Computed example of a mutant assay.
Amino acid sequence: MKFAIVREVDGVVDRLVEAQDLETLLMNTPAGCDPHPCDNPAVVPGEWRWGSGGFAPRTLPEPTPDELRADLIAKVKQTAEEWRMRFMSPGGAKKAVYSMKQAEVEAFNALGTTLAGRLAAVLGLSATARGRRFRYALAEAAIRNEPDISKAIDRFAAGADISNAGAARIEAVEQLAVMNLRAAKTLGELRAVYAALSWQ
C-alpha cells in the first residue's frame, strides 16, 4: 500500500512510501511527519499537501520580479551552454586542440595574400619553427599523404567556421535575453521575454 509522508508543520508531502506492514511504514516516517494512505497517482512530494479536504496541489506564492529574473537568467545561461555544446566538442583537451588549430589557420593566412606566397613562406621557415607553428597541419598532411599543409588548413578553417558560427549565434541570443530580462520590470514582462526566446 502507498502512503504519503506528510510534514506536520505545513502539511506538505515529504515523500511517498510503499509499505505492507506497520514496521516498514514507521521506519520510513521521520520525526515531525505523519503517514496518510494515498492512492492518488498524481500526488508528488513537495508539490502536494494534506489538508482537511485530503490531498490537493500545493499553491505556491508568486515570486517577486527579482526572484523570477534570477531564476530565468540562470535558465537562459544553462540552456545556452547546452546549445553551445551542440557545436563544440566536450572536454578541455579537445577545446585546446581546436584553439591551436585555429591559431594555425590564422598564422598561415598571415604569411601572404596568395596560396603560393603562403606555401613559400612556410618552406622558408626553419624545420623547428615550421613544426612549432603548424604541428597539427603538418601531422594531418603527413598522415593523409598530402604534399603540403594547405588542405589541412582549409579543413581546420571550415570546421571552425561551422562551429564558431553556431556558437556565436547562441552567444548573441544569450546576451540579448539576459539584457532584456534585466530590463523587464514585471512578472508578465519577464515571462514574455523568456517565452519569446528562440535558440534555433
Rank of each mutant, 00 (worst) to 15 (best):
F3I: 02
I5G: 11
V9N: 11
V9K: 12
V9W: 01
V9S: 12
D10P: 10
D14R: 13
R15Y: 03
L16S: 14
V17A: 00
A19D: 07
A19T: 02
D21M: 11
L22I: 10
M27V: 07
M27G: 03
M27P: 05
N28H: 11
A31E: 15
C38Q: 03
A42L: 00
V43Y: 02
G46P: 12
R49S: 06
W50G: 01
W50L: 12
G51K: 04
G51W: 02
S52Q: 04
S52F: 02
G54L: 01
G54M: 09
F55Y: 01
P57I: 00
P61A: 10
P63K: 11
P65S: 05
D66F: 01
E67K: 15
E67G: 11
E67A: 14
L68V: 06
R69V: 03
L72T: 04
L72N: 10
K77L: 05
T79P: 10
F87G: 00
M88P: 02
M88V: 09
G91H: 14
G92Y: 12
G92L: 10
A93F: 10
A93R: 08
A96V: 08
S99F: 12
M100L: 14
E106P: 07
E106F: 13
N109W: 09
A110E: 14
L111D: 06
L111I: 04
L111E: 06
T114D: 06
T114C: 02
G117W: 02
A120C: 07
V122P: 08
L123K: 10
L123M: 09
G124D: 15
S126Q: 07
A127Y: 08
G131E: 15
G131L: 08
G131Y: 07
R133H: 11
F134E: 13
F134D: 11
A139I: 13
A141W: 03
I143K: 15
P147N: 04
D148F: 00
D148M: 07
I149T: 03
K151C: 02
I153T: 00
A158N: 13
D161K: 14
I162A: 05
G166Q: 01
A168K: 06
R169D: 00
I170W: 00
V173F: 01
E174P: 00
L176A: 11
A177Q: 04
A183F: 01
T186Y: 10
L187S: 02
R191Q: 13
A192V: 12
A192H: 11
